[in-house]
Write a protein that binds this DNA or RNA. Sequence first.
DNA 1: CATGAATGTTGATATTTGTCAATCAAAGGA
DNA 2: TCCTTTGATTGACAAATATCAACATTCATG
Lengths: 234, 234
Amino acid sequence: MRDEDRNDIRKLSLFSNMTSPAFDALMHAAYDQVFPAQLELIRQGEAANFLHVVLEGAVELYAHWQNRDTTMAVVQPVATFILAACMRDAPYLMSARTLQRSRIVLIPAVDVRAAFARDPGFALAAVQELSEGYRNLVRHAKNLKLRNARERLGAYLWQRSLDAGGAKGFVLPQEKRLLASYLGMTPESLSRAFKALREHGVHIDGMRVTITDAAALKALVQPNTLLDTALNIP
Amino acid sequence: MRDEDRNDIRKLSLFSNMTSPAFDALMHAAYDQVFPAQLELIRQGEAANFLHVVLEGAVELYAHWQNRDTTMAVVQPVATFILAACMRDAPYLMSARTLQRSRIVLIPAVDVRAAFARDPGFALAAVQELSEGYRNLVRHAKNLKLRNARERLGAYLWQRSLDAGGAKGFVLPQEKRLLASYLGMTPESLSRAFKALREHGVHIDGMRVTITDAAALKALVQPNTLLDTALNIP
DNA sequence: CATGAATGTTGATATTTGTCAATCAAAGGA
DNA sequence: TCCTTTGATTGACAAATATCAACATTCATG
């Protein structure tokens, strides 16, 4: 593994308070790999053998049932995913695929659990990470149940604008069909929701979004940290 | 606190592997109270000062936004709730109210965090508890996004039948408007979903459900441990 | 640069779900 | 026991969202 990647991982809150020997042991057991775009990394139902860390690229977490699919989250560097399944030594509830060519570190779940038992700093960080993941999922579920499609899109755009430092204009980070699936609607409904938001201060041109009337958008979506999930891209 | 309650709490997986001194310290700091039905225990947005343990009765976790409400979960004895907010020392994302007269133990969040730092057995159990909570929430979100209203009700009934030991007949544990809210629909839609399920092997009479054709119901809902949440009532 | 495949948009229509109002049934208190 | 209140059901209708088909656009790449 490259020293640079090692340092990036070390800086993650999950690993930053580990003792160096414990961190070294984890990294020693880990695999560093580059995967092409659209590769299925994990299939739901499989045993959770590895904690994954995305160093470069992006990974989609999705779920399927019968012949239906839905996007649950997009993981951006540098971040980990499926910690919960690793900790429980249980089957993955979600599948994962790369959205772009991605560099990913795989840490054997047994080593993660061992580090947890041995290193209190890591244990504390793991709980913080899980708790925050839990809370983000509560927000996702609340959002789905309390807002309609147009409001969900508006809230999403509002939050992306905040994430961009309050910029009025920004570019959608993923293609629209993925965004539609994440927001729990069809691509057609997303397209119509964008049109409907023109009346509420949002202009869209391809992937480029401009918030033309922040007050109007805010009035519609009533943004709220108890519902809206900030991306924590470092 | 009564010895009996103390023992019930001690048996919870969250507390069963703590050292006795650590457990005693936690219980010493805790309050044991009885609340009437329909009392708001927690309001979303407030600081998380207490981990709650339900000993008797039942507690609804719900969320609201604008003038809309939705039920996120019902906590049955003996179980804890809002561990994640306590661990993060963050505002509650959900409100909580008693559904019945309930006996509840309140453990100061600072003491929970202290116990976590001092007692490795408790730390491990907390992670297991959080992880399982996380996974149940993933199931809830998948269920909302992948199944329609009728399928969600069918899956819920199938799971309750399993929870009752595979019984063909059982009684709904909560009133229907609460069930409707939990399943993400209106009471009217729930009522119609019940009628629609008559074609799929479900008979309803008031609160009493009878599964008259298990194969038909199973075919409709395609039950799946990756979507359906088993209640873990001890 | 051309071409084909994937993605996005639009219109027409169907289905699902919600809303409102009326009624019915059940439960709890005076 | 009656009465009031709350919850549940039903019907009529409205709104939201999905589906299907057609077409437009973008993107990758040969």
